[in-house]
Design a binder for these strands. Structure first.
Lengths: 230, 230
DNA sequence: GTCTATAGACTGATAGAC
DNA sequence: GTCTATCAGTCTATAGAC
């Protein structure tokens, strides 16, 4: 809602800065892009960045917050759906799937033509800059909702085990995004990083196994996924 | 009192820069430490950094290379020992242990009094700066030796599975170092990050399960673990 | 050969006119 | 809101002293 006069149209400068910055950061990384590069691409004045965002770090933070809020919303929607489908208690593999699925799909897109938003988030994962680290450190409340869902799903399990399972699931997903290039080179292309569904199955399967451990025959029909192709 | 007579090798300046830089980076991170801070702490001239190292990035690179070469040497020693003990074929868990053990022990020290070297390596894991990324990307040959050992250990296994297992083991270890703070906060201290041996056991167990787990009872052909609503 | 002093080009941030 | 002009701070490079 606008108040106090006419204010709407003038965010052109602000949005131009945001989209130019996201694209440049996605293409060349945070270290190589200066504010002068951004204002040149957005065709605005240098001082406009500080006027609208306060500092370079706050500009990066705003970009990152916007994108990660969208991902977190997606995660929670999947979690709610899984719990609803299970009558309040989601299957443990569905919880892991809701946790790492949105991020993996957003960053490991199958095409070489990824959106600027996706490539920006990959950069944010690889090049850890102070403003992004600060935001990530405040996402614990979000993860707590997944820890609670895991508790409901496996009420008998030791809480410490659940935390480690959550941690390892995030680790595998995050590192797969971060070091996808290394894995491709190491495996000489035999690990298909474009098969997002297969990677998701793989990470979920290992995460479930980490929790249900040696008792694979007991309750969880978790199996190693095996195949690759598409 | 310049040279001649009893004179130390005059790389005093060089080593003073190295140790001051390592300590400052360990304490305050890469972003907050300037060359001027370093030369002030080392009590040398600003231009000495450029004379001895060429640039700030090359100084960081030299620090990181020195420490990571030591870790890699430790890793390979453990791997050799494991293969010798197994007559040329090491047990798969011993391979994982050689891969992630040295790094975990070096960075997750039990005490709050960690060496400057250890804290520097933690910083290098958390704050990814360009010179360190460049070096990490050239460590694939080192990892190849572990992939080869895994091949010898589990000759029947699909190579792709071995690469994913190696990748996931590194992911869990690296992320545990990177995000130890988050795990502590999330678990409210119930996950003990000082129990390095326990963490190592945990990561090795999950990594082995990721390779051998699904076939506790049989071979487990391609199976979809679960599906999400979509 | 080592090291110092000094100058240069670039960055993010800001003050003040419009 | 936008812009010009300018700030203090950074890394880098080089000429020259010891």
């Amino acid at each position: 809602m606008s108040h106090s006069g006419h204010d709407m149209p003038t965010d052109h400068t602000r949005t131009a800065i945001l989209s130019a910055a996201e694209r440049l950061y996605a293409d060349r990384g945070f270290a190589d892009v200066t504010l002068r590069d951004i204002v040149a691409a957005a065709d605005v004045n240098l001082a406009a960045v500080n006027y609208h965002f306060g500092s370079k770090d706050e500009l990066i933070a705003e970009l990152f917050v916007t994108r990660s809020l969208a991902t977190n919303r997606e995660r929670l929607n999947e979690l709610k759906a899984a719990e609803a489908a299970g009558g309040g208690r989601a299957a443990i593999d569905a919880i892991f799937r809701a946790l790492v699925g949105p991020t993996l799909r957003g960053c490991l897109g199958p095409d070489n033509e990824r959106s600027a938003a996706a490539r920006f988030m990959i950069r944010a994962s690889i090049e850890s800059v102070p403003p992004i680290r600060r935001i990530k450190n405040r996402e614990i409340d979000h993860l707590r909702k997944f820890a609670a869902a895991m508790r409901r799903s496996l009420p008998g399990r030791d809480q410490v085990e659940l935390y480690w399972g959550l941690h390892f699931a995030l680790a595998m997903a995050h590192q797969t995004i971060r070091d996808s290039e290394r894995l491709i080179k190491l495996s000489e292309g035999s690990c298909d990083l474009n098969d997002v569904a297969g990677i998701l199955d793989r990470i979920v399967a290992v995460s479930v196994m980490a929790l249900t451990g040696g008792e694979a025959e007991k309750k969880a029909p978790a199996k190693l996924v095996a195949r690759d192709a598409r």
